[in-house]
Computed example of a mutant assay.
Amino acid sequence: MIYAFDTYYFDDYANTICIAFEDWTSEIETETFSEKTTITSDYESGAFYKRELPCILSLLKQINLKENDIIIVDGYVTLDNDGKIGLGGYLYEALDKKYPIVGIAKNGFASPDFQRREVLRGESKTPLFVTSKGINVDEIKPKIEQMHGNFRIPTLFKKLDQLTRI
């Protein structure tokens, strides 16, 4: 199973959603998980994980992960060639490196990272940025390209983003 997470921040709470789907080409999710939590940390530039990681870890308590499951986060897993990690990297460590984590970011990051791949989807000239730990990023790149939807953002990721804002 593939589990994709995203969080949206309202004034007084965070809404975290996870959609589960069976295959990279799936058009619809098999299950949805949601949780509203108190915001535990203000936004801190360069330390986004401090705000979002607790939300994801809390929602993961509702999910029975299995050995071959993959987790996707909205953001980066690795940030540079010097080993700096993003939200996905911290999640990978928090889960004792047991589950592959894939980061899909919509915005570029300035530091060079040999683990980062750009993915162009549909007719978009603007890439998505893919990073990972626990699974080879070059194995993931074509899977992101093949995800359902004709636009830059795959169908399920667009739905995930919309669900967080409700």
Score class of each variant (00 low, 15 high):
Lys61Thr: 14
Lys61Arg: 14
Gln62Val: 00
Ile63Leu: 08
Asn64Gln: 13
Asn64Leu: 04
Asn64Ser: 14
Asn64Tyr: 06
Asn64Met: 04
Lys66Thr: 12
Lys66Arg: 14
Lys66Leu: 12
Glu67Asp: 15
Glu67Val: 13
Asn68Pro: 04
Asn68Tyr: 13
Asn68Lys: 15
Asp69Ser: 12
Ile70Glu: 02
Ile70Gly: 03
Ile70Phe: 11
Ile70Tyr: 08
Ile72Pro: 05
Ile72Trp: 06
Ile72Met: 13
Gly75Trp: 04
Gly75Lys: 07
Tyr76Leu: 04
Thr78Pro: 07
Leu79Trp: 06
Asp80Ala: 04
Asp80Val: 07
Asn81Thr: 10
Asn81Ala: 05
Asn81Leu: 02
Asn81Lys: 06
Asp82Met: 09
Asp82Ala: 13
Gly83Ser: 07
Lys84Val: 12
Lys84Met: 11
Ile85Glu: 03
Gly86Met: 04
Gly86Leu: 06
Leu87Lys: 01
Leu87Gln: 01
Leu87Ser: 00
Gly88Ala: 08
Gly89Ile: 10
Gly89Arg: 08
Tyr90Cys: 01
Tyr90His: 15
Leu91Arg: 00
Leu91Asn: 00
Leu91Ala: 00
Tyr92Cys: 02
Tyr92Ile: 01
Glu93Asn: 09
Ala94Asn: 11
Leu95Pro: 04
Asp96Thr: 09
Asp96Asn: 14
Asp96Met: 06
Asp96Arg: 10
Lys97Pro: 02
Lys97Val: 08
Lys97Ala: 15
Lys98Asn: 09
Tyr99Asn: 11
Tyr99Gln: 01
Tyr99Val: 06
Pro100Lys: 06
Ile101Cys: 04
Ile101His: 02
Ile101Tyr: 05
Val102Met: 07
Val102Phe: 07
Val102Tyr: 07
Val102Asp: 05
Gly103Leu: 00
Ile104Trp: 01
Ile104Leu: 11
Ile104Ala: 03
Ala105Phe: 00
Ala105Met: 02
Ala105Ser: 08
Lys106Thr: 03
Lys106Asp: 01
Lys106Val: 02
Asn107His: 12
Asn107Gln: 09
Gly108Phe: 09
Phe109Ala: 06
Phe109Ile: 10
Ala110Lys: 06
Pro112Tyr: 12
Asp113Cys: 15
Asp113Ser: 12
Gln115Thr: 13
Gln115Ala: 14
Gln115Ile: 03
Arg116Ala: 13
Arg117Trp: 06
Val119Pro: 08
Arg121His: 04
Arg121Glu: 06
Arg121Thr: 10
Arg121Ser: 10
Glu123Gly: 14
Glu123Trp: 13
Ser124Gln: 04
Ser124Lys: 11
Lys125Gly: 05
Lys125Asp: 11
Thr126Trp: 01
Pro127Cys: 01
Pro127Ala: 10
Pro127Gly: 05
Leu128Ser: 12
Leu128Arg: 09
Phe129Leu: 03
Phe129Tyr: 15
Phe129Thr: 02
Val130Pro: 06
Val130Phe: 05
Ser132Lys: 07
Ser132Trp: 08
Ser132Thr: 13
Ser132Ala: 15
Lys133Trp: 08
Gly134Cys: 10
Gly134Val: 08
Gly134Glu: 13
Ile135Ser: 02
Ile135Cys: 11
Asn136Arg: 09
Val137Ala: 09
Glu139Pro: 02
Glu139Phe: 15
Glu139Trp: 10
Glu139Tyr: 14
Ile140Trp: 11
Ile140Ala: 11
Lys141Gly: 00
Lys141His: 04
Pro142Ser: 12
Pro142Thr: 12
Lys143Arg: 15
Lys143Val: 12
Lys143Gln: 15
Glu145Ile: 15
Gln146Glu: 12
Gln146Pro: 00
Gln146Ala: 15
